[in-house]
Each structure stands twice: as structure tokens, then as C-alpha cells.
């Protein structure tokens, strides 16, 4: 949804079918909010599966969540909330025409997102080593429940899909850095930064729910 390729003209981002910058900005932002609605319902399906199975087999969730490390889950929560903060700072920088600040904040966010993925990688690797593999490859004996495979299927689907969203977010922010370095953004035009930020916050919100639902079952 970015404008035409950058030249020195300040209004080059304005597409011909919009009346002015404000209309374009509002339209893009509304479009993004509607897209976020679809994301919420997309994950919503998984949450439904989670809730239905939790209502059926509460003891399964108690037993199986012991295999998840609360400490690393909490660390990842901090990491993602931190990255949300830096994205908000990045948008603020763009609004104030501080392109350097924008780029620095985006880099910090990308860094935090990578930390999140690395921690996720070690969590997955530790489970794979134990035989907690997704679906029919599940072979771990340590959870005394016949439906243990289903809990971990749900776990892998939820965190996996969330992870994919984090990776997409990293890609989007690398693109923003590239654009920012080409001086595309300024206080009059930062729509891509704003809507990527919205996306990133939603990824954060989903994790805010995943963390207690998966890790914090006592």
C-alpha cells in the first residue's frame, strides 16, 4: 500500500484515486484494521479447538503443560512486549520526522523478534529430542494421558502459526528499514510503518493470550 516510487516530490506517495493524504492514510489504516479482524478469527479457530479440548480433558492440559518451560515462556513474553514498545517508538520517530530513530527502533524490534524465534527454536528442539513431535510422529511416554498427542498438536499449531507471523513481521520490518533508508518516510507519510506496527502489536496480543493458556496451567 506504499505510494509510487520515491522521488523528491513530497506528495508522491499519494495515489491518484485518493483526494488527499489524509483520505489515503485513513483508508489504509482501516484496511489494516479489517485485516486484523481476519487475523483474530483465523487464530480464533485454533483457540476454539483449544477451549473445546480443554473443556473435555482438563487433566490432559494440567499434565501436558508441565512439559512447557514457564521461565522461557515468560522471557519470550517480555521480549515480545519489549518489541511492541520499540515499534511504538518507531512510529513516534516517524511521526516526528526522526528517520534515524525510526531505523534504530526498527532494528531493535527485529533483534527482539529474532531473540523470540531463537528461544522458540530451543524450546522446540528440546521437545523434539524428547519425542514430543507433532501429530502422528508423537512418541513421548512422559505424559500419562491417551490424548497427549492432541495437546501438543494444538500447541504446535498455535505457536507454529504465531511463529510464522513473527517471521512475516521480521520480513516486513526489514523492508521498512530499506524504505526508511531511502528516505521514503516522513511525518507526512508513514502509513507503512503505522500499519506494520498494528500488525506487530496484534502478533504481540496473540502471544499475550498464548502464554497463560499454554504455559501457565497449574
Amino acid at each position: 500500500m506504499a505510494g509510487h516510487s520515491a522521488t523528491e516530490e513530497k506528495l508522491d506517495h499519494l495515489q491518484h484515486h485518493f483526494i488527499d493524504s489524509d483520505q489515503q492514510f485513513e483508508a489504509s489504516k482501516m484496511g489494516m484494521w479489517i485485516f486484523l479482524v481476519t487475523e483474530i478469527l483465523f487464530f480464533g479457530g485454533l483457540f476454539v479447538a483449544y477451549i473445546v479440548y480443554r473443556a473435555w480433558y482438563p487433566d490432559l492440559y494440567l499434565l501436558a503443560s508441565e512439559q512447557l518451560d514457564t521461565f522461557w515462556g515468560a522471557v519470550n513474553t517480555f521480549v515480545l512486549i519489549g518489541s511492541s514498545l520499540t515499534v511504538a517508538m518507531a512510529i513516534r520517530s516517524a511521526q516526528l520526522n526522526q528517520i534515524k530513530g525510526l531505523i534504530i527502533n526498527l532494528w531493535i524490534t527485529i533483534g527482539l523478534a529474532c531473540v523470540f524465534m531463537v528461544i522458540k527454536y530451543f524450546e522446540y528442539a528440546e521437545k523434539f529430542a524428547k519425542g514430543i513431535l507433532p501429530g502422528s510422529y508423537y512418541s513421548y511416554e512422559g505424559v500419562a494421558h491417551e490424548k497427549a498427542n492432541i495437546f501438543f498438536s494444538i500447541y504446535y499449531m498455535m505457536t507454529g502459526l504465531h511463529g510464522v507471523h513473527v517471521i512475516i513481521g521480521i520480513g516486513l520490518m526489514l523492508w521498512l528499514v530499506y524504505k526508511a533508508k531511502k528516505k521514503v518516510f516522513h511525518s507526512g507519510y508513514y502509513t507503512p510503518v503505522e500499519i506494520t506496527g498494528l500488525y506487530w502489536h496484534l502478533v504481540d496480543i496473540i502471544w499475550i493470550f498464548l502464554f497463560p493458556l499454554l504455559y501457565l496451567i497449574d
Binding site: E26, K29, M30, W33, I34, L36, V37, I40, L41, G44, G45, F47, V48, I51, V52, S84, L85, V87, A88, G197, L198, H201, L202, D204
Partner: peptide, 27 residues
């Protein structure tokens, strides 16, 4: 406060509320 919904147009707030409401209906 991060997504600025507090200062946002009512329609975008409504969208957010709607998505939550439809998720709750589904479950």
C-alpha cells in the same frame, strides 16, 4: 495505547470489538 485505539475512529474500535464478539459467538 500502542495501537492507538483510544484515539482512533469509532468504526475501527467497532471492528476490534466485532472480531472479539464473533470469536465469542463461535466458541
Amino acid at each position: 495505547f500502542f495501537m492507538n485505539l483510544y484515539w482512533e475512529s469509532k468504526f475501527n474500535v467497532l471492528l476490534f470489538v466485532m472480531s472479539a464478539a464473533f470469536f465469542l459467538l463461535m466458541i
